[in-house]
Amino acid sequence: MDKLEFIKEQLKNYDGEDLRFMEVCGTHTAAISENGIPNLLSPKIHLISGPGCPVCVTVTAVIDKLTELSLTENTTVLTFGDLIRVKGSKMSLADARANGGKVEMLYSPMDAIKMAQSNPDRNYVFAAIGFETTTPVYAMVLENAIKAGVHNLKLLTSLKTMPEVIRWVCKNTDNIDGFIAPGHVSVITGSDLFKELSEETGLPFAVAGFEGAGLLTAIYALVKMKGKAGIKNFYRSAVSEKGNEEARKAVNRFFEPCDASWRGMGTIEGSGMRLKKEYSEYDAGSYGLDEDHMPPGCSCSRVLTGEISPDECPLFGKKCTPEDAHGACMVSTEGSCYNYFISGRRKR
């Protein structure tokens, strides 16, 4: 029996106390679903999707500001895919576009600069949403815009960082037994960041990539580490202990830590990044976007923190489906509700 088959057998036949492991990465959420990993585990091993999908944790005030800007004369909002369909308190960017708003989807961040250069008399607002993974991308956009003398491109930022939200989850719930540490984020931060978190929380962390074998290996490690702090790195091909220092330098040039509002969790101190004051001319009005409105009956707040599984939300699969999503967790392909729905998983 090879190592992977041994791990599969151990995970399938596990018969100890119930264990709950949280992943805090939207790509992990999707990969777990795509690889059918829940079906390979003992009923006593539970995987929980935490606040790792950037679209899912964006508060409605940010969406409202973007829709307002898209409907402003001579202004175009630029964004990546899933955000277009997320509802604000009144409408989504897709709704705004249907009502005459100017919204364009980007495939490459550098296209934002090209568009601004090609239309110097038009204003462009780039929806800068994400975690440590994408913040260096926005730093690169700013650096190149400044070098090119582009002044008609601004950022509307909603940038989050992982450490403080993980601390928040640990302080507000006592039923997490370990974390699958986010792979993409770890490339930038390094695995040492989670070593510190593990020591603080007393919980094990396992850094994983996005292949089924790597995720199963990480889950098995967490089972073996139950009750013990520590960090295991199973994504060494991309993640070092210290991470990408050059990327962090670029981020620190343009951005600084700040308090940030999270969908369903409120404001978490020191959990975000914002443009430094010396670059305020490139900000499209990101400050004070804290309000958050849940659609009636939506339980995204409880799903995001692992309090309930997606199918325990009263709207799941009824009023809320991928075709007609009410909550952000059902909109994004990295959202827990979306992946729960398409994989056919249900709580029994």
Rank of each mutant, 00 (worst) to 15 (best):
N244V: 13
V331H: 07
L47P: 07
A94P: 06
D2L: 04
T267C: 04
R274W: 09
L155I: 00
V55G: 07
L93V: 01
D18K: 15
T133V: 01
I48L: 13
G50N: 05
M22G: 12
V150E: 01
R167F: 11
G100K: 12
C337M: 05
E307D: 09
G52V: 02
C170R: 07
I308K: 07
V62N: 10
S108P: 00
T201A: 08
K249M: 09
G190V: 11
V57L: 04
V137C: 11
E200Y: 08
S89I: 02
E199W: 07
G214P: 13
L40G: 10
A181S: 15
M115P: 02
F6L: 14
V207T: 08
K154L: 00
S280M: 09
V57K: 04
T333P: 05
T161F: 11
T305G: 01
K160L: 13
D290A: 12
E323A: 13
K90H: 14
N119I: 12
A218Y: 07
E23T: 15
S336C: 02
M140I: 06
R302H: 13
H46I: 15
K232P: 02
L19G: 07
V125Q: 14
S42W: 13
G88I: 01
C329L: 09
P38N: 10
I219D: 10
C320D: 10
T29F: 01
Y287L: 15
S158I: 00
G88P: 09
L159Y: 09
K102I: 01
M162A: 13
I63S: 09
N123S: 15
Y340E: 12
A238W: 08
R20C: 11
L156P: 01
Y14R: 00
S261W: 06
L275C: 10
R348M: 10
G264F: 05
E200V: 05
T157I: 06
I176Q: 03
P295V: 04
G297D: 04
S70D: 10
A148K: 12
F341R: 02
A229Q: 14
S191R: 14
A148E: 14
N252W: 11
D95C: 04
A30L: 13
G149V: 05
L159K: 08
K347Y: 02
A128E: 12
S92Y: 02
I32S: 11
P43E: 08
Y14K: 00
F316K: 04
P296L: 11
L304P: 04
V141G: 01
G190C: 13
L304A: 05
V150N: 03
N172G: 13
K171H: 06
R236N: 14
K154N: 05
